[in-house]
Design a protein around this nucleic acid. Structure first.
Lengths: 120, 120
DNA sequence: AACAACCATATAGTATGGTTCATACTTTAC
DNA sequence: GTAAAGTATGAACCATACTATATGGTTGTT
């Protein structure tokens, strides 16, 4: 698919997609057979990566962190074990964030108590 | 306590604390009795607020969102019911983020599977 | 062929969340 | 009383993550 469709599929603006591609988050490929243009094509894997980017961003990961993850995930250089280690370490970070969120929730629950007790 | 102690208590740099105060996240008070300076004093409530800021930031809330929460929490203008409603809506957002994180976790788990199956 | 709609690249501008710096006054320790 | 450390204010600066704008080529429709 071309960038327009990719944008519609993912809900991410074309400008942002280009920014991401330029940043190195993923890569579209130009059709070798067509020499008249250099339109880039994106496949389902790119869609998946963008879903990861969206989700991870929403919960506070930076593009640099996400890029690092995605890069390792599809690297030819790395052994299967190393790739798995990278992804697993990200899963641990996600767990840490879930823990952090439950802490915030506790603080907010205490806020409610304080309000109910007229303490603020 | 003064800003130096506040910084040490919270682990947030003095510059950032001033930035937060300036942004309206909380307010220190100058001692009325001391007219020679306008050093600002911060109490335990400020420490608590900063803990909320830290936690909420870490999981992707913006300062504007957090400010909104903190402002309502200690507003004299709002009824107890409204305050509780504001905090509860934030708790719902936290739950939504937890859900989002579990989705990301699923995607990452699928990454692992893909890697194990040699699909990338 | 002409016109809209689409694609690519480059550059500049914007918003957020800070950090650094310059200046100046205050307190504390010696 | 003087040097060192702490505090306040304001402005400049910086990184991240976009967003907009300008320019020019391509495709598709009529």
């Amino acid at each position: 698919m071309l960038i327009n469709e990719l944008s519609k599929r993912t809900g991410v603006s074309i400008a942002t997609l280009r920014y991401y591609e330029n940043y190195g988050m993923f890569k579209g490929v130009s059709d070798e057979k067509v020499r008249t243009n250099n339109y880039k094509h994106y496949d389902e894997l790119v869609v998946e990566k963008i879903e990861i980017i969206k989700g991870a961003k929403e919960v506070g990961f930076t593009l640099a962190e996400i890029k690092d993850l995605l890069e390792n995930w599809h690297s030819e250089q790395l052994s299967m074990e190393k790739k798995i280690a990278v992804v697993n370490s990200k899963i641990n970070e996600v767990d840490a964030k879930i823990h952090q969120l439950t802490e915030v929730k506790k603080l907010l629950a205490r806020c409610i108590e304080d309000i109910e007790n007229g303490m603020c």
